[in-house]
Design a protein around this nucleic acid. Structure first.
Length: 283
DNA sequence: AATAGAGCCAACCGCCAGCTG
DNA sequence: CCAGCTGGCGGTTGGCTCTAT
């Protein structure tokens, strides 16, 4: 395949972007979008290659970029996801809203790798590295529970992610592209420890996993119980589980205080209700 | 105050997969 | 089916900043 000449071979500017260039790029994209990165610089009047423009936009100029230091939660999430995904930075970035793969890669190489090494040499000092099976994302918007050590499928992993966290798209976006599906698959595997299925992809596409599960389960909610747990950003959210398909319930269970507990209980119910097949029917 | 070394991060490079004609 | 084009990805690097001496 013929390769496009690199930027310097075409006499294009390289290196750090000037504020004026940023401004040109921003206003062009705001006006016309970025349908074709290769043509964009010429049309916008920039002496850069399309690739450079794309990178600048994605990594720095996009309005939804979160600047500033990574929080402890974000760093923990990266470490845990890296245990599962390895150097698949874009897949990790898909789960951390507002963060770019480049940023995550940099943080990993500059901070986290070192920190992990320290933990491994002094396992009791700060963080006790968990095995994959113990993976548990503790951030408020990313919950994961391990499959039981015995391999019992009744403790399938739970997860809460908004669509934007997984696919980078706003809710009710059109059909995901193959690359987005791959992101969703990666994210599902990373967070839940299980393989993504079409339902996950559909769920992400139609809104978010939370509401998907909720809607699906409440399709038969004539005698439903409610699970209340702390939501992503906004306090408490209610989820309905059809009690008709559940053999055992604990009505006095405290759901509201601990999201992990709620999710554990929720997923136990889900499995008792017949697992995925039941969900497919309900949906 | 000057200098060297380390750390950090924006940006580049080259490869690859998916799309299109 | 094929070749070319494009966007996306991960690895790497150059240069700026910070810190120690």
């Amino acid at each position: 395949m013929a390769r496009a000449p690199s930027c310097d071979k075409m006499g294009l500017r390289k290196g750090p972007w000037a504020p004026e260039e940023d401004q040109i790029l921003i206003s062009y994209i705001q006006k016309y979008g970025h349908a074709n990165w290769r043509k964009l610089p010429k049309q916008a009047g920039l002496v850069r290659c399309g690739k450079s423009c794309r990178l600048r936009w994605i990594n720095y100029l996009r309005p939804d970029i979160k600047r500033g230091n990574f929080t402890l939660e974000e760093e923990e999430t990266i470490i845990k996801l890296h245990e599962v995904l390895g150097n698949r930075w874009s897949a990790i970035a898909a789960i951390l809203p507002g963060r770019t793969d480049n940023e995550i890669k940099n943080v990993w190489h500059t901070h986290l790798k070192k920190r992990l090494k320290q933990y491994q040499t002094k396992p009791d000092t700060k963080r006790n590295p968990k095995s994959k099976s113990e993976m548990k994302c503790e951030s408020s918007n990313c919950i994961s529970r391990s499959q039981s050590e015995s391999g019992d499928s009744s403790s399938i992993t739970g997860n809460i992610l908004s669509s934007t966290e997984v696919s980078g798209k706003t809710p009710m976006s059109p059909q995901p592209s193959s690359s987005e599906v791959s992101s969703i698959t990666d994210a599902t595997t990373a967070i839940t420890g299980r393989k993504a299925n079409n339902m996950d992809i559909k769920a992400v596409n139609m809104g978010c996993w939370e509401s998907f599960w909720s809607d699906a389960l409440s399709a038969d909610n004539s005698s439903a119980i409610s699970l209340n747990f702390e939501g992503v950003n906004d306090g408490f959210q209610s989820h309905q589980v059809p009690s008709s398909s559940v053999d055992v319930m604990e009505p006095d269970y405290e759901y509201g205080q601990n999201l992990d507990d709620a999710m554990e209980f929720w997923y136990d119910l889900f499995i008792k209700a017949g697992g995925e097949e039941e969900l497919i029917k309900a949906f």
